[in-house]
Design a protein around this nucleic acid. Structure first.
Lengths: 336, 336
DNA sequence: AGACGGAGTGGAAGCGCTTCCACACTTCGC
DNA sequence: GCGAAGTGTGGAAGCGCTTCCACTCCGTCT
């Protein structure tokens, strides 16, 4: 809703003594404008406090200059997750470079999903970034069919070959973690895995199993958690009961690892001497006791890369999306 | 950006055998349309998959059907704060009732602030909700001058008399907390206060002091923290040193209270027998040891109320904004 | 000197929608 | 039976912007 007396381009043009066409060109920094005209227009803009009407501009250009960030499952857990905040700030930062606006779409699956899809179809935004923090619903498929440029933060669990995405190589990262435990001489290595319906959960488990397989060790000791501290504690306790000779533990997230450390302490095992522990994410890992050796999961980087993928598609819609897969980094601290 | 073959209202009208005017009325649910025409239009809409072009609609109606949520200080801390997530989901829920879209504006003070103000001035949104989680910058003043309907979640520290806002009565809440300690028989009551430049910090301190004043007790024992756990621990430790006879403690947030509990444990004081403790927020208070008696700070409610205030202003821009001040609730647990 | 190309400009046609207004057609009260 | 009121409808005028196109000046090249 404009304020009552919002100045239009017409008034700017009149004040500057040029036509509306020239005023428009000057405002948009087109080259085909004389210095004299440009200066006059700029002065008029300043004196009138002119701001272009975005709706009119969008109608004429078919660009909205805004990008949606779609969060499929906006429960409280998503928001309290530090990943989310870092993702949002990173996306926002990159979009700001191009003066693009971030529109947040909280899409609770079900009734809300329709609304979201309608919004995306409706031409409100030029593109979408999907934070597929959890399982990616059917969003990847739907968006693909929509013809709307989009990019995923984190590899979508289905349709990954048809949309752009950025992720860290979770398989390689998990492999790194487990191989560190092997190097230390661990021979009975357990894994507290994430949910099986999330790409990160699957990949980290796969990397872990591959490393054990290569070493010819038993791949049995695996328990699943749901990325909460409590679930990590419980899963670790189950592992200790089933495999009392456990001497190494790879946990699929630092938060769960924190729970696992508590379970180990409760069981009287010392870390890393009795059981060496490696986490994942590098999220508060240095505040654990003992400080956690872990694999870095750079949320901000990922979000930035995904956003740049989207920008590239906006620049050239025909370009084939090339996924970004960042190599993992291991941070050694005291726990392994 | 529309997909290439996006159907327009013209095509719908043609297919339905009516004029564009009638089609528009039918689509917008106007009353002055015959059943026959309405059915025909609806059928055409369905068969064409018509979605109204929002830019054209905005241009014609001067409504954008979207509302900005302005977050003045989007550092990681804000996002990891559970308040933020609850606020956002509550706002989104209420907006969804009216089919309004949420546009998130992350406004790092400084360079970004201009951009934000320009955006708000530019007619991109019908109104704004400001999450004045921290000190409220100059936003209240600027927005007031802009003529853009807005509402604040949490009383703005300046300009509170000129904009709509919703908050809990932090003064009364703090009073409730301290009076509980008085009832228990505490006679040397300390306070770990929040930052002095935030309304919540000021108000909770004021309520506390008023209660002590009424009881004729010493109001001296006050230390400030910054709402982090560590600052609460340090502030409590300082209080214990300065006032070894402390027997009651009101802490301005549960997170700081958690730190205070740790300081008390370290000092060998038992809670609540040696020192009774009351927190504020009811945020993870039941997971402390001992479970924390605290004052509820209903973030979701607040956000909902603020959003409804904004909706009311959108309906009737002339209406005088009446602030909402929710009464506080005390939750008794084991710590006091 | 005349033809040519490029730079700068303005006129005007849209972009897709809403809504005012005028009109035709019913229905009602007297 | 006739004017008044009410109901649906279509024509057309915008909303404020961008951009194609045509046009006028220039300086430059044969």
């Amino acid at each position: 809703m404009d304020a009552p007396g919002t100045p239009t381009l017409d008034e700017v043009a009149r004040l500057a003594g040029v036509s509306r066409a020239t005023a428009s060109r000057a405002v948009n920094g087109s080259s085909r404008v004389s210095d004299r005209a440009r200066d006059a227009v700029e002065a008029a803009v300043r004196s009138l406090g002119y701001v272009a009407n975005p709706a009119a501009r969008t109608l004429a250009t078919r660009r909205t200059d805004s990008v949606a960030v779609v969060v499929p499952e906006p429960d409280d857990r998503v928001f309290s997750d530090p990943f989310f905040g870092r993702t949002l700030t990173a996306v926002n930062r990159v979009l700001a470079e191009r003066d693009l606006q971030l529109v947040l779409l909280l899409a609770r699956p079900g009734e809300e999903e329709d609304r979201t899809l309608r919004y995306l179809r409706g031409g409100h935004v030029d593109g979408a970034i999907v934070v597929s923090h959890h399982r990616s619903d059917h969003l990847a498929e739907h968006l693909g069919g929509l013809g709307l440029p989009c990019a995923f933060v984190g590899r979508p669990i289905v349709g990954a070959d048809r949309v752009a995405w950025a992720d860290t190589d979770n398989v390689a990262g998990a492999r790194l973690a487990t191989e560190l435990l092997l190097e230390r001489g661990c021979r009975r290595i357990g894994h507290v895995a994430g949910p099986g319906d999330m790409a990160v959960g699957q990949d980290r488990l796969a990397g872990h199993l591959a490393a054990l397989d290569d070493a010819g060790l038993d791949t049995e000791p695996v328990e699943h958690g749901d990325f909460t501290e409590a679930s990590g504690e419980a899963a670790c306790a189950r592992l200790l009961t089933a495999y009392p000779d456990l001497d190494g533990l790879f946990v699929a997230s630092d938060l769960m690892a924190r729970g696992a450390l508590r379970a180990l302490a409760a069981a009287g095992r010392s870390v890393p001497d009795d059981v060496a522990v490696v986490g994942y994410d590098d999220l508060g890992a240095d505040h654990c006791t003992p400080p956690l050796t872990t694999v870095v999961n750079p949320a901000g980087d990922l979000a930035e890369r995904a956003t740049r993928l989207l920008l590239a598609r906006l620049d050239d819609p025909a370009a084939v999306p090339e996924p970004v897969l960042l190599p993992p980094t291991l941070v050694r601290r005291a726990s392994a």
